[in-house]
């Protein structure tokens, strides 16, 4: 479902050029749970942002469901983000003065769903993350783990096919981190493809697939090789 071929990304500032990603080739299939690890500054977030179309790239190509994102207009990319992709961030990124309910509603609003449909989806998502009773709370009134579960609810309320999580447990203690991991695994079992950046080796091991990035290059056993993959 995700295919990257020779993808490169260079950040240019006045002083330096940073080759954040070099010649990345990667295939992620429907239903996979892939962990992305690597040292700080190796390009993990950059890769995730490119996959989420929040960032563009300099060379190579990115096909999502067989369609190159390069040719898509801004509006088409917005639609794609809205319908196919869910984001989970390390710092939750909830809007502080919106209630839990309103936060989860955001992507559904932008999709233009009817009020009744939105309500049904939000309730379902809240049910799944176990926060139904807190729907009218403000994010600040919840613990970090609960806030991250709200963020997950927001990401899955639109029923995306891909969930991109950038260190979703980075700000959580181990107990809460485990809860979030279990939640993600549950979501994955329901068929959602997940790409998760993590620094935790245990989490990486629990994921079905482990992708490593070092210095902007993929370095791991599951390095995509189109030929072997297709014949397998």
């Amino acid at each position: 479902m995700i295919t990257l071929t020779n993808l490169s990304k260079i950040f240019r500032t006045e002083l330096i050029e940073t080759h954040a990603l070099r010649d990345i080739n990667l295939q992620v299939n429907e239903g996979e749970f892939a962990a992305l690890t690597g040292p700080s500054g190796s390009g993990k977030s950059t890769l995730l942002n490119i996959l989420g179309t929040l960032e563009n790239f300099d060379a190579g190509d990115y096909l999502l469901d067989g369609i190159s994102v390069k040719g898509l207009s801004d509006a088409a990319l917005s639609k794609l983000r809205n319908e196919k992709i869910g984001f989970i961030f390390q710092s939750f990124n909830l809007i502080k003065d919106f209630s839990i309910y309103d936060n989860i509603e955001l992507p559904l609003r932008y999709r233009g769903l009817k009020a009744s449909e939105r309500k049904q989806r939000i309730e379902h998502a809240l049910e799944l993350v176990g926060l139904h009773a807190r729907r009218d709370y403000l994010p600040g009134q919840l613990s970090g783990g609960q806030q991250q579960r709200v963020a997950i609810a927001r990401a899955i309320a639109g029923q995306p096919r891909i969930l991109l999580a950038d260190e979703p447990t980075g700000n959580l203690d181990s107990l809460m981190a485990r809860q979030v991991m279990e939640l993600l695994e549950q979501i994955n079992q329901q068929g959602c493809t997940i790409l998760m950046v993590t620094h935790d080796p245990d989490q990486a091991r629990r994921a079905g697939r482990h992708i490593q990035i070092i210095d902007g290059q993929l370095h791991d056993s599951t390095l995509y090789d189109p030929l072997t993959r297709q014949t397998a």
Binding site: L54, D74, A75, S78, R81, N82, L106, Y110
Partner: peptide, 10 residues
């Protein structure tokens, strides 16, 4: 954030 969640520019 809103853009990431799929808000169009318009």
């Amino acid at each position: 954030l809103r853009r990431a969640l799929g808000a169009k520019r318009s």
